[in-house]
Amino acid sequence: MSSSATMKLAQSETRLFLRDPIALFFGLVFPSVLLLALGYFFPGFGDEPAADLGGLRYIDTYTPIAIGLGLATLGLVTLPPILGTYRQFGILRRLRTTPVHPARLLWALMALHIVVAVLALIAAMTVSIVAFDVVFPENFVAFVLVFLLSAASIFSVGLLVGAIARTTSSGAAIGMSIYFPFLFLGGVWIPRQVMPDGLRFVSDLTPLGAAVGAMDDAWFSGTVDVAHLLVMAVYVVVVGLLAIRVFRWE
């Protein structure tokens, strides 16, 4: 049974995800829609390089920001309420009475979220490159690895929220209360390049700030700042392990 049960769980979670139009929109297409809206409707976004962005256009800078925002949406808006619901409904508790440990359900959910994140990434990259002539990432391999580490660090935070949320609504509320500060520090309203030094330092210490910074570097200069990687790795290890430790099955 073992591998087939995990496959069945992943299949079931995928179906349920596809039946949730809100999760589907925000998880899968929101980053692309945001880029299209910014590029087409904000004056000057796709035109001239801006001096304060180090010679990049706004649409260039916003491409890794939108991708990071997509990760945060999946990790902090979509994932925690699902875990809160499964706890509230006794679904995790019910699984514990079967031969399959409910941890399998968590892995199935995480895998699903990573797959959706990759699809959202492909969509957003396509939009930027095709519609707005954004350059192809300078160091594509580094960019992909940075993206996966970013996903792991942000989802670890979401997993921690989901580990303790008792209900759907508490999962949503705690997730949201982290989501918006993360977006701010990730540069959604003020890109990191134009943040005051103090603010950018705080941004560097958050998973989304480090993720956007590292994706921006890998994409446009082909370099990677080890500090960003370190910050994200610490979130994966410390927050991820904490989530596993405090996880409540009921």
């Binding site: 079931s12 179906r15 349920l16 039946r19 949730d20 619901t85 499964y86 409904f89 006794g90 679904i91 508790r93 019910r94 009475t97």
Partner: peptide, 13 residues
Amino acid sequence: GVQLQESRLQDKI
């Protein structure tokens, strides 16, 4: 086989 008190399934399953 177990049926638990106050346990339910996902609405959309």
